[in-house]
Amino acid sequence: MSISAGEVRHVAELARMALSDHEVEELSAQLSRILDHMETLRELPTDDVEPTAHVLPIRNVWRQDTVGESLPPDAALANAPERRGNYFLVPKIVER
């Protein structure tokens, strides 16, 4: 299994990750080698096997729909890279 530089760039786009040209080359080689190792899974027949996403038999854990305690705005915003009032400030998203 080899992953081309183009595929690496596509995946980086999906992951919202900038990469240098050198890293694209390096990741293409490293990911190819790692995925080669994973090819061994293909030899196992699994058509009749159910997937396991979670090991404990827990499903749909509910709680009462009541108002609880939440963080005060200043605590919630204390780590914000930029804030204005009680908002997180980010670069402009929608052009007018």
Binding site: L41, R42, L44, T46, V49, E50, P51, T52, A53
Partner: peptide, 8 residues
């Protein structure tokens, strides 16, 4: 595939 092998 990995989730299925996890079951095994």
């Amino acid at each position: 595939k990995a989730l299925k092998v996890r079951t095994l």
